[in-house]
Each structure stands twice: as C-alpha cells, then as structure tokens.
C-alpha cells in the first residue's frame, strides 16, 4: 500500500501539486487521471522519487520515502517496477536481455536461472519465443509495452507504476495492455498506480481513481460512480469525447 499525505511540489515558484493526499491499495488498479498539464505526471514522479516533494509524506507500507537516505531509496527501488510511456527499453539489448537486465544487476541467480525467469515473464505477457532475440526496434509498439511489463515484473515488485501505458497504441492493443496490467496486479497482489487520460482504460480497469485538476485532487472514487459526480472539471474531462456527449444527450432525451 502507498499513502500520499499532504504532498506539495513547486518548480521555480510555480506550485504544481497542492496538498495531495490519497491511498493506493495493493491488488487494485489505482488510476491517476487528469488533463495534460494537470500535474499527474509530477505526482507520479514525486511518488517514485524522481522528483522530491517539497512537503508531505509518501509512505510505502509505512516507510516514508522523504525520510529515506540514498541507500534506502536504492533498496526500495528494487521493489518497484515501472512501465514508461515510451517503454524505455534498452536499444543495445535484445528483448530477452532487457528482461534479464534487472536480474543480472540485483539477483544472485545463475545465468540459466535468469534466462528461465526472463522467459517465464515474457511468456506471462503473451510474447512468443520467436521475439525473444529480436531487438526492441524490430518489434511493434504493443510488443514493446509487453516487454517493458515483463522487465518491470522480473524482480517480483511490490509496487508497479505505469505512465500512460496506452499512449501510441490502438484501442484494441490498449485494452490488451490494460487487462494484462490488471491481471498481473491481482495475481501478484501488487500496488499498481497508472497515470492515464484514456477514458477507455478508466472504464475497463479503474478500481480506484483520483482526478487531478490544476494540481489539486478534485475527486476520488471508482469507475462505477464517475459519471454521476457533480464536478464541472471532472464532467468536462469525462465527457470530452463526442461519443460520450452523444450518449449523454441521448440519455437526457430518454428521460
């Protein structure tokens, strides 16, 4: 479980996060949603520690990230997996070597055990053995995301962060990736935080959602009640697509 308490973050006098507090439970898909520039990426990077929050607490199962020393943060990061927006696979390594990489850095496994574990993770994300020895540039965007997920789970992380996992993917592949992340979250009881502005993801996998607007946490809830909230900013975000507007219009006409 990750708890965020009263987190503030400013860049050169510009306050980007204003007193954010939220709890992200394990085994659930915790989604951070909001418009571009709302501060959701800054919030995620502050939770991970890529940005240092100005004030507040970020508790990983009770351990405050902001009180940790460099060595403790390094240790904590071995429990963290992250899926980046652009996958961030290492160009110079093959698909298999990308997944082996964290094992080679931080485990005491033999080479054979590492290969076995990496192959298991790649199969778990539905990749075939034919792609194992290809380089990241030789596989599609969807496959790259899967490799990135496999790499993120290689060390059995307790916490998984996904920064816009659907960016650049078609709706069908996006759905596959969303479901895969949800399956893995539930299977390994991981605390997963997903940063997204894709409403399809919200409706498919959002167990717990927080909505960030202009650096403030404007709403918290689940996908079941997101349509019935009286919050102008959230409504504007949720019903931004023409399709939703048409559906809503039709519903209003039907009433």
């Amino acid at each position: 479980m990750i708890e965020v308490k009263g987190v503030n973050k400013s860049f050169e006098g510009n306050q980007v996060l204003k007193n954010i507090s939220a709890t992200f439970e394990s085994g659930k898909m915790n989604l951070i949603i909001g418009q571009s520039g709302s501060g959701k990426t800054v919030l995620m990077k502050s939770i991970i520690g890529l940005h240092t929050a100005d004030t507040g607490k970020i508790l990983y199962d009770g351990r405050n990230l902001l009180d940790m020393r460099f060595k403790e943060i390094k240790e904590l990061r071995k429990e963290v997996g992250m899926l980046f927006q652009g996958s961030a696979l290492f160009d110079s390594l093959s698909v298999l070597e990308n997944v082996i990489y964290p094992l080679e850095m931080f485990s005491s496994m033999t080479r054979q055990e590492m290969v076995k574990r990496a192959e298991f993770c790649l199969v778990r994300v539905n990749l075939s053995a034919q792609s194992f020895h290809l380089s990241p540039s030789e596989i599609s965007g969807g496959m790259q995301k899967r490799v990135a997920i496999a790499r993120a789970i290689a060390l059995n992380p307790k916490y998984l962060f996904c920064d816009e996992p659907n960016s650049g993917l078609d709706p069908i592949t996006s759905l596959v990736i969303d479901k895969l992340i949800k399956e893995i979250t539930e299977e390994y009881n991981i605390t997963t935080i997903v940063n997204t502005h894709d409403m399809n993801s919200v409706m498919e996998v959002g167990d717990h959602i927080i909505f960030i607007n202009k650096g403030v946490m404007a709403w918290e809830g689940s996908r079941n009640d997101i349509f019935d909230v009286e919050n102008a900013a959230l409504n504007e975000f949720v019903f931004a697509s023409e399709l939703y507007q048409k559906v809503k219009k039709a519903e209003n006409l039907g009433k």
Binding site: L50, L76, K78, Q85, F106
Partner: peptide, 14 residues
C-alpha cells in the same frame, strides 16, 4: 530523452 536513464534509476541502478 527516451527515458532509458530514468528506467535505470527506477530499478535502483546508479
């Protein structure tokens, strides 16, 4: 710029 260095940092690699 392709976040590969961020990925290393997240893994706890110097």
């Amino acid at each position: 710029i392709t976040e590969q260095i961020d990925a290393l940092e997240i893994m706890g690699v110097n």
